Simulated assay, not measured.
Amino acid sequence: MRILNICAYTWAIGGPARIIYDHTTEVLAQGHEVDILSPMTPGEKSYTVPAGARLIECKRTTPISNFYREFSVEMYRYLKQHIHEYDVVHMHGIWHFGALAPFLIKNNAVKVITIHGLLDKWAVAHSKWKKQIVTILYQKRLLGKADLIQINNTDEEEDVIRYLGYRPKNMVIVPNGMKLSDYENLPPKGIFRQKHQIGAEQQLILFMGRLNIKKGLDLLLPAFKKVSEVLPNAVLILAGPDDGYQAETEDFIQKNNLGDRVKLVGLLTDTNKKEAFSDADLFVLPSYSEGFSIAVLEAMTCKIPTVVSDRVGFGDYIKKHNAAFLTTLNSEGVAEGILKILQDKSYAADIVNRAYKMVVENFDIKVVANQLLEEYKKVKKIG
């Protein structure tokens, strides 16, 4: 089977790129072929490409791509010339040109769309007027025409039904997975702390994600202010690229004299990211909207206790396994969760154990990749 993934395959985009990487690694091991078609902006760093896969980079076409995400004439030309060579074209996300282009060209490939949480109420309300235009022009119609819609959980199922007004028969729940072996041997403790002048006695709270309001930074920052008044050794690390909320973050830090307690360390990749996981005492993501947070799954795999909202993409699993402190979406709830974990070691150890068990039993990429491959094959009996 020859598979084409379409996604902005960059470190900055985060989760979807990691999902494609892990899935591709397993699919290649089974003898299939995988290409990744990625719209790119000059200066962006492409995500690591699995050995045996091929990354095809296409320049975004400006200024149109500033208004219509990931618009790329190069992408369209590539698809026009090569789409007939693929058995499966898998589009990651909606609202962007990569989720439209394969429908503009006559082809017999199985067309798959993964929603990645982009139809939840918060996501739909963000840049609402643009999404209303896209909805009217084509988005609902194309979702109905897709051969397969992959969703990760029952929350997404409700989102799709609410958006379309009916339950499409081509929709299946297949969670995202993790290559667990990548996190079996983390770097030695202390490296990240030394790099960023964080003492061994300090309690390191780690946020990892794009600096975007949807990640709940407007809740986390005032929550940490409360925490810092109770725990004078606590430090908050914000690891991720600016995505529209860095200026507000820096302003909050300055106004509240938290410059020595909150550190912005930028995007962490590869070994640097694992060093941060190795040194973290707690991971926090009070997100308003996630398709499926790979960062939370990574933290749980690294046996770090987590404070998260139930909107991280697998909240139903977390509730079932009691695998994290599930915060309400307010700063008081976030502060309560952070303090509970940092002050109660027995509680922290319990949720770490439950979370790791949940990940192993439900999100091993070997199991998940096979589920998705079987769904590909069901559509047109390919492979």
Rank of each mutant, 00 (worst) to 15 (best):
H90G: 07
L326G: 05
G43I: 09
Q254H: 14
T48H: 10
A349C: 06
H126C: 06
L104A: 01
N153A: 08
I213W: 07
K366E: 09
L268A: 10
G266R: 11
L164C: 04
A51E: 14
Y288V: 03
N233P: 00
K128D: 00
V49Q: 06
G337P: 07
F363H: 14
K179V: 14
A276Q: 07
L258Q: 10
K121R: 14
I115G: 01
L329D: 03
V160G: 00
K255Q: 14
T25F: 06
I83G: 04
G291M: 02
Q371K: 15
E374M: 11
K274Q: 14
I253K: 10
L4V: 13
L100R: 04
S293P: 05
S287W: 03
T114M: 04
L264M: 15
Y317F: 13
A101I: 06
K319H: 13
K128E: 11
I382W: 03
L285Y: 04
R18G: 05
N152V: 06
E375R: 14
L373P: 04
E290Y: 02
N272C: 03
G209Q: 02
L100Y: 05
T271N: 12
N272F: 08
R162L: 00
Y21A: 05
A109C: 08
G190K: 10
Y347D: 02
D279V: 15
E26M: 11
W11I: 03
Y68P: 03
A280S: 12
V284P: 02
E229Q: 15
V334I: 13
A247H: 12
G31H: 09
V88T: 09
D260H: 15
N362G: 06
K273M: 12
K214S: 02
K340F: 11
E33L: 12
P42Y: 04
L55E: 01
L4D: 07
K106P: 01
K303R: 15
A8R: 14
H96T: 00
G209L: 02
M40K: 11
E250D: 12
I133V: 15
W11F: 14
M358P: 07
H82E: 13
F71G: 09
Y9V: 03
A51W: 01
V124L: 12
E248L: 13
R167T: 08
V334T: 12
